[in-house]
Amino acid sequence: MNIFRLTGDLSHLAAIIILLLKIWKSRSCAGISGKSQILFAIVFTTRYLDLLSTFISLYNSCMKVIYIGCAYATVYMIYMKFRATYDGNHDSFRVEFLVVPVGGLAVLINHDFSFMEILWTFSIYLESVAILPQLFMISKTGEAETITTHYLFCLGLYRALYIFNWVWRFYFEGFFDLIAIVAGVVQTILYCDFFYLYVTKVLKGKKLSLPA
């Protein structure tokens, strides 16, 4: 555990809680892609199956349980509790175009051809693109609530911090996981355009809206 890893995890946790609080306080999930949230629930479920087989640390187990619990709570709020506020018409990204290729890639390129390892690889690949329905929705409507942009910023920051964590681990532990690193870099690149808008608009007190 290093400082980048810890702050990365906390940033991830902050993102998840910001989103839950936004929906809960406003009693609305307007502007939130339910499809991205379903993908994240799938990501956590397929990655954290090792909760049942391997104990790593109390920290590790607690965070996994919290991430999974929050992911399903978010999906429940969007599709059940506050379903009436869900903007399904604008959430039109075709997720099969992500899930099918990612599934194929996980079977082809993995560290070990075993059930758990392929599911883990699938979750790593899927996480790297799971935000696309959300970004697609924002580009379609041309705007995002400020609280939604804070959520996206924390989520992107988590990924950027993980890259620093891998640099640290490579230098000080001689460790690297190519699958996690490549997927993590792809995921971070997807946020670059958003980071630019966040810094130039949202941090200056303006609402995030895209030019028509």
Partner: peptide, 10 residues
Amino acid sequence: SLSINPKDEL
């Protein structure tokens, strides 16, 4: 193997 086993990262 180069992978994290056990997977300590989240």
